[in-house]
Simulated assay, not measured.
Amino acid sequence: MDVLSDVIAVMRMGEPRSARVEWHAPWGQRFVSVPGSAGFQAVLEGFCWLIPPNGRPVQLGQGDVVFLPHGSGYALADSPSTPLTQPACDPQHDPRWDQRYASDVIGRTAQNGSQPVTVTICGGYQLDPSRAHPLLGDLPEIVHLPSRAGRNQEVRAAVDMLARELDDIRLGVDTIVPALLDTLLLYILRGWLHEQSGRKPVSGWAAALNDSEIRAALNGIHNDPAKQWSVAALSAVAGLSRAAFSRKFTALVGQPPMAYLTWWRMATAARLLRDSEAPLGAIARRVGYTSEYAFANAFKRQYGIAPGRYRRVIPATAEQ
């Protein structure tokens, strides 16, 4: 798997949620902060304003998508001056979102022919903060991908397909919608990375993944974490001298190559412990350890808990 796909596979947990909502003016809705989650809003019809807790409101038009990677609170409204509904919407506890995939109409009773209507589609992902990939940490509080001719076409296509599924719940929805939500998330991240490439960032994960040499080394680690990698082997994949590679990797990724390799191995092991019944010895070999004892020590240093206990405790926590 490539780095971007791995970010999603390792961090995602639980069931994603999504809803299609019609808003009839005037309307304004607060959304609470949900730590350990990420979410998006996409405008299918009309326009609205995204109101962050800090900063100026952002107008969203048809086709615009915003991604909130850190679970920050925010509000949506037909106008920045519209009073916001209290209490704030909490997708984790609001009965309107009891179903994983929903459709709702806000303001139906106030509707008349002269009122503008906005249609949005929203979604939420539950993430495991213990395996938070540093790529996500580099993202701003709000990622805004505006609709522009010839730009972010894959994002728009995924949103349109998701909207059709939510508008008419049919057979196969339990497989199709999660797949579309993951696909949309990858397209959003890819779109953000593409936009950053035009700005030529000098550090951080946007710079690392837009750098062909460092991206080659990262893909080597992610494609085969069990390989007995060394700085010399990774520098050869990158096509750089050991010293030049080590300096560049550390500057862009934020940690030395071998430190990132160890972190990624442990994150991969944690996912395998959560999602599979493979024996500890098999998981140790999958992430590059010939000794189960050495693997257990490395895992405990990373997570503060033995891998066997992690397997017993974490799935129960993830389901709550």
Results as ranks from 00 to 15, higher is better:
residue 158 A to R: 14
residue 184 L to C: 09
residue 165 E to S: 10
residue 189 L to G: 00
residue 176 I to M: 12
residue 170 R to P: 00
residue 191 G to H: 05
residue 172 G to E: 04
residue 159 V to I: 14
residue 161 M to Y: 05
residue 162 L to F: 01
residue 181 L to C: 11
residue 189 L to S: 02
residue 165 E to G: 01
residue 164 R to G: 07
residue 172 G to A: 03
residue 189 L to K: 02
residue 152 N to D: 14
residue 143 V to N: 03
residue 185 L to Q: 15
residue 171 L to H: 08
residue 146 P to T: 03
residue 196 Q to E: 13
residue 178 P to W: 12
residue 153 Q to M: 01
residue 148 R to W: 01
residue 163 A to C: 04
residue 185 L to H: 10
residue 164 R to D: 15
residue 152 N to E: 09
residue 171 L to C: 04
residue 190 R to I: 06
residue 161 M to T: 10
residue 178 P to D: 10
residue 185 L to N: 11
residue 178 P to T: 12
residue 176 I to Q: 11
residue 153 Q to E: 07
residue 173 V to S: 10
residue 158 A to H: 13
residue 159 V to H: 02
residue 148 R to M: 08
residue 188 I to W: 07
residue 148 R to F: 03
residue 165 E to L: 05
residue 145 L to Y: 02
residue 156 R to M: 05
residue 169 I to Q: 11
residue 171 L to Y: 09
residue 178 P to R: 10
residue 181 L to D: 03
residue 187 Y to D: 15
residue 174 D to W: 13
residue 167 D to H: 12
residue 175 T to L: 14
residue 186 L to N: 10
residue 184 L to N: 08
residue 190 R to N: 09
residue 195 E to M: 06
residue 157 A to H: 07
residue 169 I to A: 11
residue 187 Y to K: 15
residue 158 A to W: 08
residue 148 R to D: 03
residue 148 R to Q: 12
residue 149 A to N: 09
residue 183 T to Q: 13
residue 182 D to V: 05
residue 163 A to K: 08
residue 184 L to G: 03
residue 158 A to E: 14
residue 158 A to Q: 14
residue 191 G to I: 04
residue 167 D to W: 07
residue 162 L to V: 02
residue 184 L to T: 11
residue 153 Q to Y: 00
residue 150 G to S: 05
residue 146 P to N: 01
residue 185 L to C: 12
residue 173 V to K: 11
residue 190 R to M: 08
residue 148 R to A: 12
residue 146 P to M: 03
residue 171 L to R: 07
residue 189 L to Q: 06
residue 194 H to L: 13
residue 180 L to N: 05
residue 146 P to R: 04
residue 191 G to R: 05
residue 145 L to G: 01
residue 152 N to R: 07
residue 196 Q to T: 01
residue 178 P to F: 12
residue 150 G to M: 07
residue 168 D to N: 14
residue 165 E to R: 11
residue 164 R to L: 15
residue 173 V to G: 00
residue 158 A to G: 01
residue 192 W to R: 07
residue 158 A to T: 12
residue 165 E to K: 05
residue 152 N to M: 02
residue 179 A to F: 09
residue 151 R to V: 09
residue 168 D to M: 13
residue 162 L to C: 02
residue 177 V to N: 04
residue 149 A to G: 01
residue 179 A to G: 08
residue 161 M to E: 14
residue 152 N to A: 09
residue 156 R to A: 11
residue 151 R to I: 06
residue 185 L to G: 03
residue 174 D to G: 09
residue 183 T to H: 10
residue 148 R to E: 14
residue 184 L to I: 11
residue 181 L to P: 00
residue 155 V to D: 03
residue 145 L to N: 01
residue 147 S to P: 00
residue 161 M to C: 09
